[in-house]
Simulated scan of single mutants.
Amino acid sequence: MAALAVAGVASAQSSVTLFGVVDASISGYSNSSRDLNNGVTYNANGLPVAYNPFYRNQGSVKLSRRELAHSGYNTSRLGFRGTEDLGGGLAASFWLEAPIKNDDGSEGAATFSRRATVSLSGGFGEFRLGRDYTPTFWNNSVFDPFGTNGVGTNLIHTAGGLFGSPTRASNTVGYFLPPNLGGFYGQVQYGFHEQTKYDPGFATPDKADIARKGRYVGGRFGYANGPLDIALAYGSNITGDNYFAGTTDKVDIFNIGASYDFGPVKLLGELSQAKQKTDFDGYYLADRLSLTSTKLNGWLVGVTVPVGPGLIRASYSGVKYKTDDLNPFYDKPDPKANKLALGYVHNLSKRTALYATVARVSNKNGAALTVGGPSFIGNKVFTPKNSTGYDFGIRHAF
């Protein structure tokens, strides 16, 4: 009886929830490349140096695939979360969330790589420790009608991930503002690189990526009240380093997103810039001049329209790469891509929905972004061009 009484007190002060999403779709992808050569050979400055009158254009080549996929509408996952009331307005919480591949069962709750945090919250806000989403990711997701899932995912998120903009960061300490600030919200996050520091510094092994790689710093602040939601975010992610060369490779990300719900229609949009750069701590000016940087500028406009129990979704997004190659004689055309996505979600209940999405990416000047599926054939002959895809699926949340 005493044990039961203790258990009753414990259950009254805390709660644990099992939750998840199982999402499956029939998805198809088709990615085509074209031979854009005309027999002319160009040098590094973009000047023609040779012509082959016998060159025969090889046309185009297409790679396609159809599969039973997952996470076309919402990401499939399995999670556990819980909260304990500590009294005095304080609460301790945990969140463990694992990705699952329900199409073949090859991945399950063996790793909580989606989120693994423990936190303490109160009137001061919330302190959260562990692996968590980065602040810059939230604008990519919240202001995308497709929520960065399936073939409809906006190009800002797709290209940013390849560029080095992380969705999640490990080993982080985060702080979130309290929710009672009249619509204002925000967070800051620091991720430890957990690299070994040597004293004196010359004892550091002469290897790459062992001094600072892995550190993340970011923040997001916004305002949501009624139909309006607007937020800006910044993040800096160290992707590599070389201690003795005095270089640190990093990706800096800035984005701003907004949405406004008019009732019959909701408009969404985002602007983003990510910059790959190398910070140099050396002494020689020649080394400093040899460094290059690349920018990725992106934009997104989207709309959602409620129709009875369903929702129409549409978005148009684009990205453009800008490389500072320090060539004063020739500026190569900037790679760029645009994407159009259309979709419909039919809610059978609050937890179950049917959905359909189609999308197409148009690449120019050597960009090679896809809606998913196989990679482009890209070489000296073929240049990536168009990518199309579809998702038809069902999502159940519990």
Rank of each mutant, 00 (worst) to 15 (best):
A353Y: 01
L354K: 05
P328L: 11
F184A: 04
I100Q: 06
G161W: 10
N379C: 00
T388D: 09
L86E: 14
L296W: 00
N57I: 13
G20R: 11
N379P: 02
Q187I: 03
P309K: 14
K380W: 10
N102H: 05
G161I: 10
K336F: 09
G183K: 10
N149M: 02
V188T: 15
Y321A: 08
I26G: 06
N102A: 11
G226V: 01
T158V: 10
T357V: 15
R288V: 01
F382L: 12
A44H: 04
D206C: 05
S259M: 03
L289S: 14
H396T: 13
W95T: 10
S317A: 04
N242M: 07
G201L: 00
A109T: 13
G20Y: 13
L311F: 03
E194K: 13
S14M: 07
T294W: 04
K364T: 08
T41F: 02
G366R: 09
S293L: 05
A367C: 05
T136M: 02
L18I: 08
S387K: 10
L36T: 13
I256G: 02
P335H: 10
I312V: 11
G310H: 10
K364Q: 15
Q189V: 12
A367S: 06
N297Y: 06
A169P: 08
A2Y: 09
V319L: 08
V265L: 14
T83V: 14
D391C: 04
K62F: 10
G105Y: 11
G366L: 08
H193A: 14
P309Q: 14
L162S: 03
N74S: 15
G87V: 11
G174W: 04
I256C: 01
D281T: 08
L285A: 12
W138H: 05
A10Q: 06
G302I: 14
A24L: 13
N327V: 11
S106Q: 15
A98F: 00
S121E: 03
T83I: 12
L228F: 11
N347R: 10
R212F: 05
D209S: 01
P205F: 13
K62E: 15
D287L: 13
R360G: 12
A314F: 13
G269E: 03
S315C: 02
A24W: 07
I100K: 03
T247Y: 08
Y133Q: 00
E270L: 03
N38E: 03
T294K: 09
S27R: 06
F184P: 01
S76E: 05
F244A: 08
R66K: 12
T148F: 07
L36V: 15
A109P: 04
F221S: 00
L340I: 14
L36P: 07
V371K: 02
G389M: 05
S106L: 09
V301Q: 06
Y190M: 09
D144G: 09
A341S: 02
S11I: 14
A44E: 01
R215V: 11
I26W: 15
V49R: 15
N363V: 12
N43H: 01
S349D: 10
L78I: 15
Y243T: 03
S106G: 13
D249I: 04
G105F: 10
T370C: 00
T83K: 14
E97G: 08
R360I: 13
K295T: 10
N31P: 02
T247W: 07
K339D: 06
N43P: 00
G108L: 09
N37G: 09
A203N: 05
G235E: 03
T153V: 02
T294M: 12
Y190R: 10
V307S: 07
Q13Y: 15
F202P: 00
